[in-house]
Write a protein that binds this DNA or RNA. Structure first.
Lengths: 108, 108
DNA sequence: CGTGTACGGTCTGTAGCACAAACCAGTCTG
DNA sequence: CAGACTGGTTTGTGCTACAGACCGTACACG
């Protein structure tokens, strides 16, 4: 059963609240480490860790692991693609809301 | 392990793409029937049906089943609560995005 | 009056995923 | 050396979005 999809459907990878929070923080900050993200998003470590992996797999963020003062440190930054796709996602949401405000453009 | 949640966390019932689409359509249209919703959202029948049930359980929409020209007809409308909560959801998203634009308000 | 076929939905099975708890590696403190 | 803390990753599981099977009714048409 084919469905027409003139509505591009929101990207789940981005739309997921936890990830949207992460991406949003990152877009304001150039680069953030694990602990900072955990505090700002309120996610648990495990949860944050797995979301970051998914974002990395999706090419939205770049993760760099180093040692800072003998301790492991995970630094995360938006990739160019990540920045663009996140912006586009907000655009889609805007569009959607705009349509909601406008009167129905129903069929004949 | 307690987390602070000054960020109210997005309502999943509303945030889910399929449901957001439904709510968005409904907010422009006063009332819509099943088939109309199916076409505008691009969801399959099964999927749409279960989402509508969840929205109804959550008190966001009111569903009215009647017969139109001897055929069953399911009509859906936003409740007052649904309208308000949907609006609030958009507000939360706005807030989130606004924070992203602003420079990081990190801790000392 | 069967026998299609289209309409309008609901019910069911399943794959995928968000989440937190358990775990692990290394460091510091006494 | 024991113990606690920091900074994560891996594992288990309960939920749920999704589509496809299914069901009932209505309207052909021979």
């Amino acid at each position: 059963m084919e469905m027409r999809d003139d509505e591009p459907a929101l990207d789940r990878l981005i739309h997921e609240p936890a990830r949207l929070a992460i991406l949003t923080v990152l877009s304001s900050v150039e680069s953030a480490d694990f602990v900072f993200l955990q505090r700002t998003t309120g996610l648990t470590k495990g949860n944050l860790s797995s979301h970051l992996s998914k974002l990395e797999d999706g090419g939205l963020v770049a993760i760099e692991k180093t040692f800072v003062r003998r301790k492991p440190n995970t630094s995360v930054a938006l990739t160019a693609e990540g920045r663009e796709r996140t912006a586009r996602h907000w655009d889609q949401l805007d569009l959607m809301r705009a349509r909601a405000q406008a009167p129905a453009d129903d069929r004949p």
